[in-house]
Simulated assay, not measured.
Amino acid sequence: MTRLLHVTGPDDPAILEAAAVLAMGGLVAFPTETVYGLGADGLNPEAVARIYAAKGRPATNPVILHVADAAAARELVSSWSAEAQGLAERFWPGPLTLVLPASNLVPSIVRAGGSTVALRCPAHPVALALIRATGRPLAAPSANRSQHLSPTLAQHVASSLGDAVDLILDAGPTAAGLESTILDLTGGRPRILRPGPIGPAELAVLVGPVDLWEGAVKAGEVQAAPGMAERHYAPRARLELVAPGAGLMEVSGLVAYVGLGSLPDLPETVRGILLPMDADAVAARLYALLHELDDAGFERIFMERPPENEAWLAVRDRLWRASAKEQP
Protein backbone atom coordinates (compact mmCIF):
# COMPACT_ATOMS: atom_id res chain seq x y z
CA MET A 1 0.00 0.00 0.00
CA THR A 2 1.42 3.35 -1.06
CA ARG A 3 1.78 5.90 1.71
CA LEU A 4 0.98 9.56 1.07
CA LEU A 5 2.50 12.09 3.45
CA HIS A 6 1.63 15.78 3.46
CA VAL A 7 4.74 17.95 3.58
CA THR A 8 4.67 21.47 4.96
CA GLY A 9 8.21 22.50 4.01
CA PRO A 10 11.88 21.51 3.81
CA ASP A 11 12.09 20.80 7.57
CA ASP A 12 9.15 18.39 7.63
CA PRO A 13 10.05 15.00 9.26
CA ALA A 14 8.41 13.25 6.30
CA ILE A 15 11.47 14.14 4.21
CA LEU A 16 13.70 12.01 6.44
CA GLU A 17 11.22 9.13 6.08
CA ALA A 18 11.38 9.51 2.32
CA ALA A 19 15.19 9.60 2.36
CA ALA A 20 15.20 6.31 4.28
CA VAL A 21 12.93 4.73 1.65
CA LEU A 22 15.28 5.89 -1.11
CA ALA A 23 18.35 4.59 0.73
CA MET A 24 16.76 1.12 0.75
CA GLY A 25 16.19 1.18 -3.02
CA GLY A 26 12.57 2.34 -2.86
CA LEU A 27 10.60 4.76 -4.99
CA VAL A 28 9.42 8.14 -3.72
CA ALA A 29 7.25 10.58 -5.66
CA PHE A 30 8.04 14.18 -4.77
CA PRO A 31 7.15 17.67 -5.98
CA THR A 32 9.38 19.88 -8.08
CA GLU A 33 8.59 23.33 -9.41
CA THR A 34 7.63 21.76 -12.75
CA VAL A 35 5.78 18.44 -12.14
CA TYR A 36 5.91 15.62 -9.60
CA GLY A 37 8.87 13.29 -10.11
CA LEU A 38 9.24 9.57 -9.42
CA GLY A 39 12.51 9.39 -7.51
CA ALA A 40 15.06 6.68 -6.88
CA ASP A 41 18.72 6.61 -5.90
CA GLY A 42 20.29 7.62 -9.20
CA LEU A 43 23.49 5.65 -8.56
CA ASN A 44 21.64 2.41 -7.76
CA PRO A 45 20.85 0.60 -11.04
CA GLU A 46 18.37 -1.76 -9.40
CA ALA A 47 16.43 1.15 -7.89
CA VAL A 48 16.39 2.99 -11.24
CA ALA A 49 15.13 -0.21 -12.89
CA ARG A 50 12.11 -0.01 -10.58
CA ILE A 51 11.31 3.41 -12.08
CA TYR A 52 11.28 1.94 -15.57
CA ALA A 53 9.07 -0.95 -14.44
CA ALA A 54 6.63 1.28 -12.54
CA LYS A 55 6.20 3.67 -15.47
CA GLY A 56 6.32 1.09 -18.26
CA ARG A 57 9.10 3.29 -19.62
CA PRO A 58 11.09 2.13 -22.66
CA ALA A 59 14.73 1.33 -21.86
CA THR A 60 15.70 3.70 -24.71
CA ASN A 61 14.45 6.74 -22.77
CA PRO A 62 17.05 8.11 -20.30
CA VAL A 63 16.14 9.70 -16.97
CA ILE A 64 17.20 13.03 -15.50
CA LEU A 65 19.42 13.07 -12.42
CA HIS A 66 18.41 15.72 -9.89
CA VAL A 67 21.26 17.21 -7.87
CA ALA A 68 21.59 19.64 -4.97
CA ASP A 69 23.97 22.05 -6.71
CA ALA A 70 26.57 22.49 -9.45
CA ALA A 71 29.29 20.87 -7.33
CA ALA A 72 27.26 17.66 -7.19
CA ALA A 73 26.65 17.84 -10.94
CA ARG A 74 30.37 18.14 -11.72
CA GLU A 75 31.00 14.75 -10.10
CA LEU A 76 28.65 13.11 -12.60
CA VAL A 77 30.22 14.42 -15.80
CA SER A 78 33.52 13.85 -17.57
CA SER A 79 33.63 17.46 -18.74
CA TRP A 80 32.08 20.54 -17.11
CA SER A 81 32.32 23.45 -19.53
CA ALA A 82 32.35 27.18 -18.90
CA GLU A 83 28.91 27.23 -20.57
CA ALA A 84 27.59 24.71 -18.07
CA GLN A 85 28.99 26.70 -15.17
CA GLY A 86 27.47 29.95 -16.39
CA LEU A 87 24.07 28.36 -16.98
CA ALA A 88 24.08 26.69 -13.57
CA GLU A 89 24.98 29.96 -11.87
CA ARG A 90 22.14 31.75 -13.66
CA PHE A 91 19.34 29.18 -13.77
CA TRP A 92 19.94 26.68 -10.93
CA PRO A 93 17.99 25.94 -8.87
CA GLY A 94 15.41 26.07 -11.64
CA PRO A 95 13.69 24.34 -14.58
CA LEU A 96 16.77 23.86 -16.78
CA THR A 97 18.24 20.42 -17.52
CA LEU A 98 21.76 20.23 -19.00
CA VAL A 99 22.89 17.30 -21.15
CA LEU A 100 26.63 16.69 -20.71
CA PRO A 101 29.19 13.88 -21.16
CA ALA A 102 28.61 11.35 -18.38
CA SER A 103 31.28 10.18 -15.95
CA ASN A 104 31.75 6.52 -15.02
CA LEU A 105 29.70 7.12 -11.87
CA VAL A 106 26.46 7.30 -13.85
CA PRO A 107 24.86 3.86 -14.37
CA SER A 108 24.14 2.80 -17.93
CA ILE A 109 20.41 2.46 -17.22
CA VAL A 110 20.20 6.15 -16.28
CA ARG A 111 21.79 7.06 -19.63
CA ALA A 112 19.71 4.53 -21.62
CA GLY A 113 23.09 3.14 -22.69
CA GLY A 114 24.25 6.43 -24.17
CA SER A 115 27.32 8.49 -23.34
CA THR A 116 25.60 11.57 -21.90
CA VAL A 117 23.71 12.39 -18.72
CA ALA A 118 20.86 14.86 -18.14
CA LEU A 119 21.24 16.91 -14.94
CA ARG A 120 19.19 19.54 -13.16
CA CYS A 121 18.88 21.21 -9.78
CA PRO A 122 15.19 21.67 -8.94
CA ALA A 123 13.91 24.87 -7.36
CA HIS A 124 11.28 23.31 -5.09
CA PRO A 125 12.35 23.44 -1.41
CA VAL A 126 10.99 19.96 -0.69
CA ALA A 127 12.83 18.45 -3.65
CA LEU A 128 16.11 20.08 -2.63
CA ALA A 129 15.68 19.00 0.99
CA LEU A 130 15.04 15.41 -0.11
CA ILE A 131 18.14 15.34 -2.33
CA ARG A 132 20.28 16.70 0.49
CA ALA A 133 18.81 14.32 3.06
CA THR A 134 19.49 11.38 0.75
CA GLY A 135 23.02 12.52 -0.09
CA ARG A 136 22.71 11.07 -3.59
CA PRO A 137 21.54 12.30 -6.98
CA LEU A 138 17.93 11.31 -7.57
CA ALA A 139 16.81 9.80 -10.85
CA ALA A 140 13.35 11.28 -11.29
CA PRO A 141 11.25 11.31 -14.45
CA SER A 142 7.65 12.47 -14.14
CA ALA A 143 5.60 10.30 -11.78
CA ASN A 144 3.12 8.83 -14.25
CA ARG A 145 2.75 5.95 -16.67
CA SER A 146 4.85 6.31 -19.81
CA GLN A 147 3.31 8.48 -22.58
CA HIS A 148 0.53 9.65 -20.25
CA LEU A 149 -0.17 12.99 -18.59
CA SER A 150 2.44 14.31 -16.20
CA PRO A 151 1.25 14.91 -12.61
CA THR A 152 0.93 18.35 -11.09
CA LEU A 153 -0.80 17.06 -7.93
CA ALA A 154 0.02 14.18 -5.59
CA GLN A 155 -3.40 12.71 -6.39
CA HIS A 156 -2.40 12.45 -10.06
CA VAL A 157 0.57 10.29 -9.02
CA ALA A 158 -1.59 7.98 -6.93
CA SER A 159 -4.12 7.57 -9.75
CA SER A 160 -1.47 6.82 -12.37
CA LEU A 161 1.01 4.64 -10.48
CA GLY A 162 -0.95 3.20 -7.57
CA ASP A 163 1.04 0.76 -5.44
CA ALA A 164 4.05 0.87 -7.78
CA VAL A 165 5.43 3.77 -5.71
CA ASP A 166 6.36 3.31 -2.05
CA LEU A 167 5.78 6.84 -0.79
CA ILE A 168 4.29 10.07 -2.14
CA LEU A 169 5.25 13.44 -0.67
CA ASP A 170 2.32 15.81 -1.11
CA ALA A 171 3.24 19.50 -1.09
CA GLY A 172 0.28 20.73 -3.14
CA PRO A 173 0.16 21.77 -6.80
CA THR A 174 3.32 22.43 -8.77
CA ALA A 175 3.93 25.96 -10.04
CA ALA A 176 5.30 25.82 -13.60
CA GLY A 177 3.09 22.93 -14.74
CA LEU A 178 5.34 21.82 -17.63
CA GLU A 179 8.61 19.90 -17.53
CA SER A 180 12.03 21.56 -17.58
CA THR A 181 13.82 22.91 -20.62
CA ILE A 182 16.48 20.39 -21.75
CA LEU A 183 19.61 21.91 -23.28
CA ASP A 184 22.25 19.72 -24.94
CA LEU A 185 25.78 21.09 -24.51
CA THR A 186 27.63 18.20 -26.15
CA GLY A 187 27.54 19.48 -29.75
CA GLY A 188 29.05 22.39 -31.59
CA ARG A 189 26.26 24.74 -30.55
CA PRO A 190 23.83 24.50 -27.63
CA ARG A 191 20.61 22.79 -28.68
CA ILE A 192 17.21 22.61 -26.98
CA LEU A 193 16.00 19.01 -27.02
CA ARG A 194 12.81 19.76 -25.09
CA PRO A 195 11.27 23.23 -24.75
CA GLY A 196 10.29 24.31 -21.25
CA PRO A 197 9.87 27.31 -18.95
CA ILE A 198 13.25 28.79 -19.93
CA GLY A 199 13.19 29.85 -23.57
CA PRO A 200 15.83 30.20 -26.31
CA ALA A 201 16.15 33.97 -25.91
CA GLU A 202 16.97 33.69 -22.19
CA LEU A 203 19.58 31.02 -22.88
CA ALA A 204 21.13 32.92 -25.78
CA VAL A 205 22.00 35.81 -23.49
CA LEU A 206 24.56 33.52 -21.82
CA VAL A 207 25.63 31.05 -24.51
CA GLY A 208 24.93 32.75 -27.83
CA PRO A 209 22.69 31.33 -30.58
CA VAL A 210 20.74 28.23 -29.53
CA ASP A 211 19.44 25.60 -31.93
CA LEU A 212 16.03 23.98 -31.46
CA TRP A 213 15.58 20.27 -32.14
CA GLU A 214 12.15 19.62 -33.58
CA GLY A 215 10.89 16.20 -34.45
CA ALA A 216 10.29 12.81 -32.90
CA VAL A 217 12.43 9.82 -32.01
CA LYS A 218 10.91 6.62 -33.37
CA ALA A 219 9.98 3.78 -31.05
CA GLY A 220 13.02 1.60 -30.31
CA GLU A 221 15.58 4.34 -30.99
CA VAL A 222 17.69 5.64 -28.10
CA GLN A 223 16.72 9.16 -27.01
CA ALA A 224 19.34 11.71 -26.00
CA ALA A 225 16.93 13.09 -23.41
CA PRO A 226 13.37 12.60 -22.12
CA GLY A 227 10.41 14.06 -23.99
CA MET A 228 11.62 13.35 -27.53
CA ALA A 229 9.17 10.58 -28.44
CA GLU A 230 6.39 11.37 -30.89
CA ARG A 231 3.58 10.58 -28.42
CA HIS A 232 3.95 11.83 -24.87
CA TYR A 233 2.06 13.74 -22.16
CA ALA A 234 -1.24 12.37 -23.47
CA PRO A 235 -4.64 12.23 -21.76
CA ARG A 236 -6.86 9.17 -22.04
CA ALA A 237 -9.31 11.25 -24.05
CA ARG A 238 -8.55 11.81 -27.71
CA LEU A 239 -6.93 15.24 -28.00
CA GLU A 240 -7.27 17.12 -31.29
CA LEU A 241 -5.80 20.53 -32.16
CA VAL A 242 -7.93 22.94 -34.19
CA ALA A 243 -7.49 26.39 -35.69
CA PRO A 244 -8.35 29.29 -33.34
CA GLY A 245 -12.06 30.10 -33.42
CA ALA A 246 -12.81 27.13 -35.67
CA GLY A 247 -15.71 25.91 -33.58
CA LEU A 248 -17.33 22.50 -33.99
CA MET A 249 -20.14 20.84 -35.83
CA GLU A 250 -22.42 18.51 -33.90
CA VAL A 251 -20.43 15.74 -32.22
CA SER A 252 -21.45 12.77 -30.13
CA GLY A 253 -20.28 11.63 -26.71
CA LEU A 254 -18.68 13.67 -23.96
CA VAL A 255 -16.75 16.40 -25.77
CA ALA A 256 -14.86 19.46 -24.53
CA TYR A 257 -13.55 22.46 -26.47
CA VAL A 258 -10.70 24.52 -25.02
CA GLY A 259 -10.39 28.04 -26.37
CA LEU A 260 -7.59 30.57 -25.90
CA GLY A 261 -8.71 34.14 -25.19
CA SER A 262 -12.25 33.57 -26.48
CA LEU A 263 -14.73 30.83 -27.28
CA PRO A 264 -16.64 30.37 -30.55
CA ASP A 265 -20.30 29.37 -30.64
CA LEU A 266 -20.47 25.72 -29.68
CA PRO A 267 -23.16 23.04 -29.78
CA GLU A 268 -25.04 22.70 -26.51
CA THR A 269 -23.63 19.19 -26.11
CA VAL A 270 -20.02 20.48 -26.02
CA ARG A 271 -18.46 21.84 -22.84
CA GLY A 272 -16.59 25.06 -23.56
CA ILE A 273 -13.51 25.89 -21.48
CA LEU A 274 -11.83 29.27 -21.74
CA LEU A 275 -8.13 29.72 -21.00
CA PRO A 276 -6.38 33.11 -21.10
CA MET A 277 -4.15 34.14 -23.98
CA ASP A 278 -1.21 33.87 -21.60
CA ALA A 279 1.43 31.19 -22.21
CA ASP A 280 2.63 30.93 -18.60
CA ALA A 281 -0.91 30.68 -17.26
CA VAL A 282 -1.82 27.98 -19.77
CA ALA A 283 1.38 26.04 -19.03
CA ALA A 284 0.59 26.07 -15.32
CA ARG A 285 -3.00 24.90 -15.90
CA LEU A 286 -2.74 22.56 -18.90
CA TYR A 287 -2.00 19.16 -17.33
CA ALA A 288 -4.37 19.73 -14.39
CA LEU A 289 -7.17 20.59 -16.82
CA LEU A 290 -6.55 17.51 -18.94
CA HIS A 291 -6.51 15.35 -15.79
CA GLU A 292 -9.86 16.87 -14.75
CA LEU A 293 -11.41 16.14 -18.14
CA ASP A 294 -10.14 12.57 -18.08
CA ASP A 295 -11.51 12.05 -14.58
CA ALA A 296 -14.89 13.40 -15.70
CA GLY A 297 -15.04 10.84 -18.50
CA PHE A 298 -14.64 13.09 -21.53
CA GLU A 299 -13.91 11.11 -24.68
CA ARG A 300 -12.67 13.88 -26.98
CA ILE A 301 -10.96 17.18 -26.30
CA PHE A 302 -10.61 19.82 -28.99
CA MET A 303 -8.06 22.53 -28.19
CA GLU A 304 -7.16 25.60 -30.17
CA ARG A 305 -3.61 25.72 -31.48
CA PRO A 306 -1.48 28.24 -29.57
CA PRO A 307 0.29 31.12 -31.32
CA GLU A 308 3.52 30.36 -33.17
CA ASN A 309 5.73 32.74 -31.17
CA GLU A 310 8.50 31.71 -28.75
CA ALA A 311 6.43 32.33 -25.62
CA TRP A 312 4.19 29.38 -26.55
CA LEU A 313 7.00 27.03 -27.63
CA ALA A 314 6.74 24.60 -24.69
CA VAL A 315 2.93 24.51 -24.73
CA ARG A 316 2.92 23.82 -28.49
CA ASP A 317 5.43 21.01 -28.03
CA ARG A 318 3.36 19.29 -25.32
CA LEU A 319 0.11 19.61 -27.24
CA TRP A 320 1.67 18.31 -30.45
CA ARG A 321 2.99 15.20 -28.70
CA ALA A 322 -0.18 14.70 -26.62
CA SER A 323 -2.29 14.71 -29.78
CA ALA A 324 -0.07 12.28 -31.72
CA LYS A 325 -1.44 8.85 -32.55
CA GLU A 326 -0.91 6.22 -29.87
CA GLN A 327 2.17 4.08 -30.39
CA PRO A 328 1.82 0.26 -30.25
Rank of each mutant, 00 (worst) to 15 (best):
P101L: 11
S103Y: 05
V110A: 00
R90V: 02
C121E: 14
E83F: 07
A88S: 15
L119Y: 02
L100H: 00
R111M: 06
G94L: 04
P101K: 11
V99G: 04
C121I: 12
P101G: 12
S115M: 13
S108N: 03
T97E: 11
A102P: 08
A112E: 11
A84Q: 07
F91G: 01
L119H: 09
G113D: 01
N104Q: 14
R90P: 03
P93H: 12
R111H: 01
A118R: 06
T97R: 09
Q85K: 14
S108D: 14
L105P: 09
G94F: 01
N104P: 00
V106E: 14
W92G: 11
P93M: 00
S108M: 00
T97G: 09
P107E: 15
R90I: 04
T116S: 15
S103R: 00
V117W: 08
A88M: 02
V106P: 08
A118V: 04
P93I: 07
E89W: 06
A102S: 10
G94R: 05
P107K: 08
S108L: 00
S115V: 13
L119Q: 05
L100M: 12
P101N: 07
C121S: 15
F91D: 08
T97A: 13
V99E: 00
P122S: 11
A112N: 10
W92K: 11
S115K: 15
L96H: 09
V110Y: 05
L87R: 04
G94H: 14
F91Q: 05
L100P: 08
G94C: 10
R111W: 02
E83I: 02
F91S: 04
A118G: 15
T116W: 10
E83K: 08
V106Y: 13
Q85C: 08
C121T: 08
P107H: 13
G86W: 02
A88F: 08
F91A: 03
S103A: 02
P107T: 13
V110H: 14
P101M: 06
